[in-house]
């Protein structure tokens, strides 16, 4: 306390100067229109700058919340998209879409898998399709109570039904285990007309995905094969090295279709 008093006494001239300056500026502010306007502008500028600074800090700490909000909104949009875009699947068969975060993701093996933070308790079922905002990611192959593993498109065991978006020619995509950006589109006969840039989408002839979900685009094709089929390279829309939020498509009619196939 004594040191505070000493400090005040020592700096009394500065304190008095600041008090008198404040009184003077109050006098200026209240009596002169010019100074009122100019000080008002300075005040507005300072308050706007400080508010912007503080709001940028606050918004940084709210990013996680904002991100969750955006994922939730995205989920709603995906549901709407499913209803209106993939016309052969009605809202009853594609009864729900769950979102999940990637917790493990490999791309450097021949049989890559992805593990997500949702499981049985979150209504994730086996053999359901998984997509991201850019397109197909893979298929759920194992489910525990809280986690699920997904066979990604970058897995040499996965063969997925696909079609060319423009011509509806049916084929299948596989991964040869070499380039993580390139898939092979098989079973497209020479009689089909294809060109570089054509989009490849899911064909709808599987349990996993409705028709029309983007997979990639043709970047190269070879017609020299003697078997009568093109050798087509498809660049994947998804970047598997940076997957974070995924959507799991739950279909109610999977069991029904499965039982028909088993008969």
């Amino acid at each position: 306390m004594q040191s505070i008093i000493n400090s005040i006494v020592k700096n009394r001239n500065l304190i008095i100067y600041l008090i008198l300056s404040f009184i003077t500026f109050s006098f200026l502010y209240n009596n002169s229109t010019l100074h009122f306007n100019e000080l008002g502008k300075i005040s507005t500028y300072l308050s706007a700058t400080s508010s912007k600074f503080s709001s940028s800090i606050i918004s940084y700490f709210n990013l996680r919340k904002e991100n969750e909000k955006l994922i939730s909104e995205n989920l709603q949009l995906k549901k709407m998209e499913s209803t209106y875009k993939y016309t052969q699947i009605n809202e009853d068969t594609l009864n729900s879409i769950n979102s999940a975060k990637v917790i493990v993701n490999s791309i450097n093996k021949s049989k890559n898998i992805i593990i997500i933070d949702k499981g049985k308790l979150d209504s994730i079922n086996l053999d359901t399709g998984v997509i991201s905002s850019k397109g197909v990611v893979g298929i759920v192959k194992n489910v525990t109570n809280n986690y699920a593993s997904i066979i990604s498109l970058l897995n040499t065991d996965l063969r997925l039904n696909a079609i060319l978006k423009n011509t509806s020619t049916i084929g299948s995509v596989t991964w040869d285990g070499l380039n993580t950006r390139i898939l092979k589109l098989n079973d497209i006969p020479h009689s089909s007309t294809i060109k570089v840039g054509d989009t490849v989408v899911t064909g709808g002839m599987s349990f996993y995905f409705p028709k029309g979900i983007p997979i990639g685009k043709i970047i190269n094709y070879d017609k020299s094969s003697l078997e009568g089929y093109y050798e087509i390279d498809v660049e994947i829309f998804n970047d598997f090295s940076s997957l974070s939020n995924l959507y799991i498509l739950n279909r109610t009619d999977n069991n029904e279709i499965q039982s028909l196939l088993n008969e």
């Binding site: 008095i16 300056s21 003077t24 500026f25 006098f27 100074h35």
Partner: peptide
Amino acid sequence: TVLLILGFLIGLIIDLSMQTYGCHTFSTI
């Protein structure tokens, strides 16, 4: 300290007489 108070009072008197609303006072203090 007395000089500061004196500066304030004289500046204020000049401001009031010249209608300069505190410009003299602030310069003086």
